[in-house]
Design a protein around this nucleic acid. Sequence first.
DNA 1: CTGAAAGCGCTTACAG
DNA 2: CTGAAAGCGCTTACAG
Lengths: 345, 345
Amino acid sequence: MGSARITAYDVAKAAGVSQPTVSRVFSRSASVDPAKAERVRAVARELGYIPNLVARSLNSGNSFRIGIVLAYLKNGFFGEALQDLSKALNKQGYSVTVYFAGNSSDEVDAIVDDLLADQVDGIVLASISLSNALVSRVRKSGIPCVLFNRGQSDPGTSMVTASNFEGGKQATEFLIKAGHKRIAHLAGWRKALNGVDRRDGFLAAMESAGLNPLACVDCHFRRNVAMEETRKLFAQNEVPDALFVANDHMAFGVLEVLREELGLRVPEDVSVIGYDDAPMASWKTFDLTTVRQPLRQMIDATANTLLNEITNPSCAPEKIEIPGELIVRGSARIPTGTARPKAQT
Amino acid sequence: MGSARITAYDVAKAAGVSQPTVSRVFSRSASVDPAKAERVRAVARELGYIPNLVARSLNSGNSFRIGIVLAYLKNGFFGEALQDLSKALNKQGYSVTVYFAGNSSDEVDAIVDDLLADQVDGIVLASISLSNALVSRVRKSGIPCVLFNRGQSDPGTSMVTASNFEGGKQATEFLIKAGHKRIAHLAGWRKALNGVDRRDGFLAAMESAGLNPLACVDCHFRRNVAMEETRKLFAQNEVPDALFVANDHMAFGVLEVLREELGLRVPEDVSVIGYDDAPMASWKTFDLTTVRQPLRQMIDATANTLLNEITNPSCAPEKIEIPGELIVRGSARIPTGTARPKAQT
DNA sequence: CTGAAAGCGCTTACAG
DNA sequence: CTGAAAGCGCTTACAG
């Protein structure tokens, strides 16, 4: 359709006003005579005029675009987060551009350059595996930024996380109360703060109860590693009677090994608790007791924090922790005296 | 922080050249004296100059941004598609902005307006549930567009799909060859062409074999509906000995009903074939025979088609169908004489 | 309330 | 190869 796009100038001519007046009508930046404004709008509608945001960006200094940096979307959690975050930001007039971070430092540098070149007004760093180099380069750029679900002890950057320490503690206490003594933890990744915090919560709960962890092994948040470690644990003399697994994705693999390979009954022979409350956790096939990540609240906090920093550049960085919630299902023994909640979906 | 961004003009002054020369160095649009170019680059690096893409967009007419419209990302397939597509387009110098389509026609209109306002150079419509109104509004805008994995008989718009008819036929023939007679199809959604095509492939294979479908019910691509329909099928007098399910997500639920609720063995009592080859299909828990969507090839075709339309606006719309592949696992009986392939992951 | 003017940071003919 | 000039489509003081 080679037809050139309609500009504010075209509308102005057709409506018998000046181009800045058209601009004022659409940017609601100043008052315009109501009748005239209505005429402008009518003409614009008829001509199919839509303000060019690129031009607006250039002189207003705001692009109304947010960059969100991710590592992968195969994990449904981040996909859902992206979707919700995007909707929340759209509602405030921002569009969301995605950037996928690789691992090499060249790629990381390239991403920061892209972010700067694209003139994004704000950045969300949403991947566990983002390097510190990226975070500090972004910080130096001066563009408002918040870390989403990513532990990173950069005091200058805002971040929103679930309270992983509390969640790990809660899950472990539940197992202890149910009478388990030989509890093992299949941990996340020692370089990812959320995994570390869950593990520390586990260790703290064990210590408070005067129990020694049967094991506590790093599984890199990877399903296959968790499955292999499970096999090893059950090849020992003293086998676990409960497993706390650092995320649901690994827990699904662990359940598979326990039931299909080792022929164990869950929770009669061994209790399993996961972390995240991924959609699949509620499937009968898994029926996984797990700590729910309060995604909605985390998204809202992320959007609000970022928008606040954009609006008010001098505000101090915020560290927001959203508490999780233990979702009790069938994969872990239920402490006596604890009312089994009605079906939680 | 507040320090104003370095512009081409700043670099020019520091390097002792004119601003357009700096522009030429970074846009490689014209030849520049090599020594001078090197000096400019050095100064730029030192000052931390990064060209402002917004300014470039405004007069070049290209934003180097692609809009991708999605309905949801909870389904891992689209998340992965988004990631791969984004990487492919990034490689060609485009950034990708995401737009989530709701259902109401107001929302659809708003998305088209956003796409236009943002001056995207191209659009990918990637959701089954996008209304025809959206497609035709996008088409009228004249912005290059390709439909990804979405049946939609708009002759004027390019589209890339898997060959769903062939896939449905292939899966059904596999069941027939294994000796099944009472085959039922749990279909996708009659308003989504990919579901319809899979169903038609099923019907065609049945007809060729002189078999009557035991059932063929619309499940809207929804897990819960598929589960409910499975219960109904097995409450009849004549129960199926094989099920072809229109996607893996539903098939996982179907397997759950068969095994956990009905106590049936798969594939001894009933064979199940899914569609998509979602990552979970290879898990031992499911071990699902399924038709693999050739995602990589579909992504490549989508990116290439779109870039081609952008570069060459007068080219005719393309309809590309990528053949699928039956991945044989343990959930369906294997026809005698068919070599069971080595473990497919 | 509203028009004429300048300018956002680039690219692109146009001369030289 | 390279500088001076115009312009992309808006917004924003500045007068009135």
